[in-house]
Simulated scan of single mutants.
Amino acid sequence: MDTRIIFQILLTFIDMLFLFVFPSEGRSLHVRHCQQPDDIEEAFNNLRNQLDLTVLSNAESTEIIPCPSQTLSHHGDPQRLRSTCPWIWEANIDNTRYPQKIYNARCICRNCIGSSTKYHCESIFTHVKVFRILNCVNGLLRYVQDEQRVSVGCTCAHKRTHRNS
């Protein structure tokens, strides 16, 4: 391997180590006066690999609502509220990530609507690619690719049983 490549990998590793070992100091010292690169949105769209995750960054605002006693059935109601495990969107904001705002689904019912108590609502998770701020170079933020665990909905599932070891 070329020594320049090894040196660049080593510098990147040191930058990442500094960011995670000294998170608040690292972020405030290095990125306070930095700007995002002009092509960050294009780079992020390429990172997503054409996967439609618009709901994760453009979800409609919702207020906290109680668990309904029955599922909604009006054709105009969104799927998330017609489900036997309805959910709301909650914003997760992280200023060291691009995009800074990602919405997570939060189940509003403990048990599935209309079923016995042996079924309950569980979040469905996926991992999405994001950028994390690495440092600032010449007034521009530098990012590193990362993954973020995100809840995208809720499902009705049989409760887990505990096994005796």
Rank of each mutant, 00 (worst) to 15 (best):
F20V: 15
E63W: 05
Q8E: 14
Y143V: 00
D39T: 09
L56K: 03
Q70K: 01
E147S: 06
R110S: 12
N95A: 11
D2C: 15
H162K: 10
V137E: 13
R27L: 12
G153W: 06
M1D: 12
S57E: 09
R132M: 05
Y103E: 03
T12D: 09
Y119M: 05
L56H: 02
Q100E: 12
I14V: 15
T155E: 05
L56I: 11
T126P: 07
E42M: 05
I102E: 02
E122G: 13
F44E: 04
H74E: 09
C136M: 07
N135Y: 08
E41P: 04
I108C: 05
Q100L: 07
V128E: 05
D77M: 13
G76R: 11
G153N: 07
D38F: 10
C112N: 00
V144P: 04
F13G: 12
Y98G: 04
A91N: 00
N135W: 05
F131R: 01
P86N: 07
R163Q: 07
I64L: 14
Q70S: 08
K118C: 10
I64N: 11
F131D: 00
R4K: 14
V150R: 00
N135M: 09
C85L: 07
T126H: 00
C154P: 08
L56Y: 08
T62S: 03
N164T: 14
S69K: 01
C121K: 03
Y119G: 03
Q8V: 04
T126M: 02
C156V: 09
N49I: 13
L29Y: 11
V137L: 13
Q8P: 04
L47I: 03
L11I: 15
G26S: 15
R82V: 00
V150D: 01
D2T: 13
T12F: 11
H127K: 13
I6G: 11
I9Q: 13
L11G: 07
V128I: 15
I14H: 09
G114Y: 05
Q36R: 02
C109L: 05
K129S: 04
H127T: 12
S24T: 15
C136L: 09
P68W: 00
Y98S: 06
R106Y: 08
K159P: 06
L17G: 06
R80Y: 08
W89F: 08
F22W: 03
N58Q: 14
R80V: 03
L11V: 14
L11K: 06
P86S: 05
G26Y: 02
N104I: 04
G139Q: 12
Q100V: 10
I108N: 03
H30C: 10
S115D: 11
V150P: 00
K118I: 08
Q148P: 03
L47D: 04
C154G: 04
P37K: 06
T84M: 06
T71K: 14
E25F: 13
G114M: 04
S24I: 15
S73D: 04
Q50I: 15
E25T: 15
N45M: 12
L10M: 13
Q100T: 09
G114P: 01
H127A: 10
H74S: 03
I124C: 11
I5L: 15
I88A: 07
S69L: 11
I14T: 14
S165Y: 12
W89G: 00
S61G: 07
